[in-house]
Nucleic acid binder design. Structure first.
Lengths: 168, 168
DNA sequence: TGATAATTGTTATTCAACATATCAAATATC
DNA sequence: GATATTTGATATGTTGAATAACAATTATCA
């Protein structure tokens, strides 16, 4: 067996010296930490994680919350319209609506002027749920973000992300 | 059935008047555009999309690129260590490595001092690929982002995202 | 008008990302 | 030396995202 780098490392470790990349040390992210896409993704996961935690009492995912918000602001639209503006494909939106409708949060009503389409409406229960959901988001989730970043930075962050979404 | 809002809308449409939310108009995002998580996710999708476009000649996904970067900066680590720092679960990292190794970009070497683990190394080919990949990322992908945001804003954005990742 | 095309919601299906349980081999612990 | 832990791997399940195809309905336009 040849004297390997790991053998050297082992010897150093026996002497309790720090080794080249000390095996017990956190890895170097290197250029990864400069990659916007990488950091963006990790930040997004963190934020969704917190969102789910804050929303646990209501059992609403970010996607479901976004649907309810959109229905509130745009009552009477059909499935295609809602799905499109959320970037959800129509086939995948079906089961999503099934879930919300079976919980009594929204309803599909056959449109009278285009009997192919379903008009989407929040139910009373859906509106109540949305009120509580908004409160949780504002007081737990976004409040924590505001605390971390400060309102100015938070606004700047949102502005840049919006720019990316709209102009990139 | 009561006279519904949709009925009113229908009547108005018959008169060719613009209705409350004119059906042909883009939907109102409303509070959705103020939701950091929502905007963050959409921005992330946009950026990954562009990354894939820029990287198409090399056929590298963001995840694969991040592995190669990490192997370059941390040669000789084992699968668990690399997977962990990338937030990839060890079972899922296996097939990922299979892909990279079958393309000759990296190799697993049985460790001599712990024969359970595989030391991961970039191959010569992997290093060459990485050089080209970095060039594409810098000159096409990140350059476009810099053009959109400006270097100062880009740095500020990255700093805030990093803060979220590390402190949220 | 009537034939043809397009749209809507839906189903089926595929693919990738993500997660858990389990295993044999090797190592660590005590 | 018996027991527990770690490592890479397999199997498997779940979810999100994507495409093709279908019946019902509506739009188009010759």
């Amino acid at each position: 067996m040849t004297v390997s780098k790991t053998a050297v490392a082992e010897a150093a470790r026996a002497r309790k010296e720090p080794v080249e990349p000390a095996e017990t040390t956190a890895l170097q992210l290197g250029e990864l930490s400069e990659l916007l896409g990488y950091t963006l993704k990790r930040a997004q996961l963190k934020i969704f994680e917190d969102f789910l935690r804050c929303m646990a009492p209501l059992q609403l995912t970010p996607a479901q919350f976004s649907v309810l918000l959109l229905l509130e602001k745009n009552p009477g639209r059909n499935q295609t319209e809602i799905a499109n503006t959320l970037g959800i494909l129509r086939p995948n939106f079906v089961s999503m609506l099934d879930g919300l409708e079976s919980r009594g949060l929204c309803e599909r009503v056959r449109s009278t002027n285009d009997r192919r389409s379903h008009i989407l409406l929040l139910t009373e229960r859906g509106r109540n749920m949305l009120v509580r959901a908004k409160r949780l988001v504002a007081n737990k989730h976004e409040a924590r973000l505001n605390e971390l970043l400060g309102p100015t930075n938070r606004a700047a962050l949102l502005a840049m992300l919006t720019k990316i979404v709209n102009e990139f």
